[in-house]
């Protein structure tokens, strides 16, 4: 079995175990609720817990689960892929739409290895303007950000 396959099956078991913990916590919390609101969550979380445990113990993984479906990515790329969405979400909350967008698009593109500055600038301005103009046009407010508040727009 190739190295990637071992990682895939091991990662799958870990993923199932984490979901199992979620079901377990939900089951315990549900025990504290009145009889009607807790009934369905108890049933579902109990079933979910046993299914997750079965997967964690290695049942239910077919032969094809051991096969690597994708190439193993580089560590830096993986870190960037995992960190970029929460970082931009945090930027929206802190800085608001305009500043977060004008910073995030060029920064992420650059970190991914894209070096054509003219294209980066054009896409950044294009995306920012199309969202920044179109959304308010249909009365959809944009995130203003904690620092700049409403005065920024």
């Amino acid at each position: 079995m190739p190295e990637n396959a071992t990682h895939s099956a091991g990662g799958g078991r870990l993923f199932a175990a984490l979901i199992g913990i979620f079901f377990g916590v939900q089951f315990v919390l549900a025990l504290g609720y009145p009889s009607d609101p807790r009934l369905f969550p108890l049933i579902v979380s109990a079933i979910g817990f046993f299914l997750a445990m079965a997967l964690t113990l290695g049942f239910g993984f077919g032969e094809q689960d051991g096969e690597p479906t994708q190439q193993r990515p580089g560590r830096r790329q993986l870190e960037l892929a995992i960190l970029a969405p929460p970082a931009f979400g945090f930027g929206l909350w802190l800085l608001g739409f305009w500043l977060a967008t004008l910073v995030a698009i060029p920064a992420i593109a650059y970190l991914l290895g894209y070096r054509n500055r003219a294209v980066i600038a054009a896409v950044t301005v294009g995306v920012a303007l199309s969202i920044g103009v179109l959304f308010p046009l249909v009365h959809v407010p944009l995130p203003h950000g904690l620092i700049f508040g409403r005065s920024f727009l």
Partner: peptide, 11 residues
């Protein structure tokens, strides 16, 4: 995709 992914993230 190096240019598309950040734009999609924003959208």
């Amino acid at each position: 995709t190096k240019m598309l992914a950040p734009a999609l993230l924003v959208v």
